[in-house]
Write a protein that binds this DNA or RNA. Structure first.
Lengths: 348, 348
DNA sequence: TTGTATGCGTTATCAC
DNA sequence: GTGATAACGCATACAA
């Protein structure tokens, strides 16, 4: 039994459980039982000696070796379109805060909603044998679900392939909520900036918008839906197009707060005031939404809570408990970017 | 050699390299050489058979096993105070974008600037045998540095313990830059909201502020430094205190853009306009900074580039190349929240 | 160019 | 309550 393999380890080899055992005068098995919090009985004397030796040697267990044997890594993969988006940053924070106490670590992947990138990361996570996945923000469809082959517990945040456990809000209701708020303020010409076409979240919000208009008996001709995106890019041009319409809308829905803030600015640059001339509603209620001037009226989506709930559902799955769909509530937060329609003003 | 251990694996055992080898009619060694991109020669025929078998079996290598042997995990730990902060979200994005191409994955840890949490995560990362660490945002001092015991390559983002490679900006210069901008606009009574006391970033910016004032010959009595924080909490009260001063400042520095936006709002609520009555400068140039009204004048800190540079430095370290200190430039972005001092207005 | 054997660090199993 | 031993899945030194 010669030790042949020794590929010139640059870093000093850290103490192993055998080192600890030797120093404590016990077998590796006993040392393991103490250090891995096993429920196998160990004498008090032995326990103390092992603990002392471990401390003295600065022993740090190697989770790779442990995981190889136990088939559990206590790591979860998190797939998110983009952490730079404050909404996803909030989700991520919730995920991490829920993972920590369970002693699970989070491997972060930004997909940019790019299926190729997503698949690449998926494979990387499977190679690392993560215990499970939390997937937020679309483009995780049936094909991707097939990659994990059901071998990996997955919890979606937002809508995903049927059958996959999921934590989400009702975006149709959210879209309707925002629209009804504007209708109640007297607006009839309400435009809707939709998010990216691939996003079910965006599609649902538009659906809610349409439904609310129909239910209020607003003529279909008043429906105006323009595809935007979830980022401020291109917003000034879109707003210009809206202002050029005849008659022009007196209110509008932005796909999220980030875009809403950009819309307010674009309107400002075109000489329109919010909310006096145009009312604007966003979605998400990201932290800055309440600090900008005018403070944004928005439909709050509990990003942080969604993250937490997803990890909790995943934890349940890993513990053998089935998980279904969790729907968290959204809430309209009326602030300063919307007001009663003043017939004398408006964009026209 | 009986196979005894079979702890009722709930998940179907995935194919191993032995399975692939058997199916391909070669030895595990040959299969390994093909699948791990070893430079050991393998016949073309063998290579094709192995690849085919791997594909057919849906083989996914187990990185845990590989890492146990190679002593490299291709994972890096990232310690950040809080991803919800757009600045750190940007840093994180840069880190991830640089890590991906190197096939490294990112394990994310939010420390909340809490030393206990930091140490807890540090240990978790060492147990996972990450290849290295990127640490952003303070509270990583000598004690923490000692934990890694030099066994782990660390790259700091921002100032850290001496001797540790670090990627940062010159925050003293940044603070001076912002202050000089206000001085050039004619302001003399400039207040400074400092970030948290523990933050060297905050301290440096204040130092720059003081230096610029001194160099401009502004009386020391005009120096006003109030401790704020990096979040908007408590901003209204601070602004109220500032407005109550006699004479009141005509301009102020916020510790970062997030706080600057809150300051603008608080001033607005107190009936002061920005920049007509008070000029405000922020730091970071987070994405929303240019979309709010008024658009924020700010000293841009290249968060994304810092993240990238840190990972590149870490990669160098891992490849045996030494890393020193990299200082990236900051840049004043003059927008709408600052203007020439109008003697007839001001807060007084 | 290929196969055999060994061990990475840990824990589960079994015998004591 | 303790210890020897066999895996976990893989990559490599060495022999062929």
């Amino acid at each position: 039994m010669g030790a042949r393999l020794r590929a010139a380890p640059r870093r000093r080899r850290s103490a192993t459980i055998r080192d600890v055992a030797r120093r404590a005068g016990v077998s590796p098995a006993t040392a393991s039982r103490v250090l891995s919090a096993s429920r196998h009985p160990v004498s008090e004397r032995g326990r103390r000696r092992v603990l002392a030796a471990a401390r003295r040697l600065g022993y740090i267990p190697n989770l790779l070796a442990r995981s190889l044997l136990t088939r559990e890594t206590a790591a979860i993969g998190v797939l998110v379109p983009d952490v730079s988006n404050p909404y996803y940053a909030g989700v991520l924070r919730g995920i991490e805060d829920a993972a920590g106490p369970a002693r699970r670590t989070v491997i972060l992947c930004n997909t940019d909603r790019d299926p190729a990138k997503l698949r690449w990361y998926l494979r990387a996570l499977m190679e690392r044998r993560v215990d499970g996945l939390v997937v937020a923000g679309g483009s995780f469809g049936r094909a991707e679900s097939a990659i994990t082959g059901g071998a990996l517990p997955v919890v979606m945040i937002g809508r995903g392939p049927a059958r996959l456990p999921c934590v989400r809000v009702d975006n149709v209701a959210a879209g309707a909520l925002a629209t009804r708020h504007l209708l109640e303020l007297g607006h009839r010409r309400i435009a809707c900036l939709a998010g990216p076409a691939v996003s079910t979240t965006a599609a649902d919000r538009v659906a809610g918008y349409r439904r609310a208009l129909r239910e209020a008996g607003v003529p279909a001709a008043h429906e105006v839906v323009l595809e935007a995106g979830f980022t401020p890019a291109g917003v000034p041009a879109l707003v210009a197009r809206l202002l050029a319409r005849e008659p022009a809308p007196t209110a509008l829905l932005a796909p999220n707060d980030l875009v809403a803030i950009a819309v307010v600015r674009a309107l400002h640059e075109q000489g329109r005031r919010v909310p006096e001339d145009v009312s604007v509603v966003g979605f998400d209620d990201i932290p800055v939404a309440s600090y900008v001037v005018p403070a944004l009226t928005t439909v709050a989506v509990p990003a942080y809570a969604l993250g937490r709930a997803a990890v909790e559902a995943l934890g349940g799955l890993l513990a053998g408990r089935p998980a279904g769909t969790v729907v968290l509530p959204t809430e309209l937060r009326v602030r300063e970017s919307t007001s009663v329609l003043d017939e004398r003003r408006g964009l026209a």
